[in-house]
């Protein structure tokens, strides 16, 4: 009889422990200024995962491409604000500013960017939320652009600052991937404001939120730049 009781008690305490686990994570990433033990554990694991993802990343593996008939049109809007709030950037006065470890920091106008070799792709855009759309983007390959401006490609990060205050950063290996482009066009016409006009990053080897829109500044650096979502707890590497 004793044995049976022991079994039941263990079961009960186990059930209670499981219950405790599910309520405990309620506190994760809620107060960014005061990370608790759980936050620190999650951060450590995220850092470990970023390293594993960098190891898994093969610079020669291409993201799958699709026929034009599969393009999702109209595309799906997603941001932390409503579509009507998308920033309007005047294409006539637009200048892409450069910073960090770059030799030639002359800003680039849209016309100058359009004067560079352009490349197009029909790739899948996967959101961290789990949905995906297919789009046709074209623009300047980022690897070409980085070499052209004399960027130090031994640096770790390329960072982006956007017209709406959004910011993000990617690892250099992914920045140099052949399918990573500074996109200017969607379906062969200039990008519209909600979808990143005048210049956005299109990087099919990463999740959607790593494709910043309406980029105003690009920098090359060795200091971890973080990102709008990344600083709140999204996994920084977020490779596909």
């Amino acid at each position: 009889m004793n044995k049976l009781d022991l079994g039941r008690r263990k079961l009960l305490s186990r059930a209670l422990a499981l219950g405790a686990i599910t309520t405990l994570p309620g506190c994760d990433f809620e107060d960014l200024a005061h990370p608790d033990l759980v936050d620190r554990f999650l951060r450590t694991m995220l850092a470990f995962n970023d390293e594993m993802q960098a190891l898994l990343f093969n610079p020669h593996t291409l993201a799958p491409t699709f026929p034009a008939s599969m393009v999702t049109n109209p595309p799906r809007f997603n941001a932390y604000y409503d579509i009507s709030m998308a920033p309007m950037v005047d294409p006539a006065t637009y200048q892409l500013e450069l910073g960090g470890q770059i030799q030639d920091k002359q800003p680039w106008t849209l016309a100058a960017l359009r004067g560079l070799p352009q490349e197009g792709q029909i790739t899948r855009f996967i959101c961290v939320e789990g949905w995906r759309v297919i789009g046709q983007w074209s623009g300047v390959p980022l690897a070409y652009f980085l070499h052209r401006i004399g960027a130090d490609t031994t640096c770790k990060y390329v960072s982006f600052k956007c017209a709406d205050g959004y910011y993000s950063s990617i690892d250099m290996a992914s920045a140099l991937h052949p399918q990573t482009i500074l996109a200017l066009d969607f379906l062969n016409v200039p990008l519209t404001a909600p979808f990143g006009a005048p210049v956005r990053l299109r990087i099919p080897v990463k999740l959607g939120f790593k494709n910043p829109k309406s980029i105003m500044q690009l920098a090359v650096t060795n200091t971890y730049p973080g990102g709008y979502w990344e600083d709140q707890g999204y996994d920084w590497f977020s490779g596909s």
């Binding site: 599910t22 994570p25 994760d28 694991m45 939320e129 996994d235």
Partner: peptide, 27 residues
């Protein structure tokens, strides 16, 4: 981004929002 016509009650999910859920999952 639910696949079906329902979501799981927040009281039985782990992680208070999507980012935390992913962090727990990857951990």
């Amino acid at each position: 981004s639910p696949l079906f016509n329902f979501t799981f009650p927040e009281t039985i999910t782990i992680g208070a929002w999507l980012g935390a859920g992913i962090a727990w999952h990857l951990a």
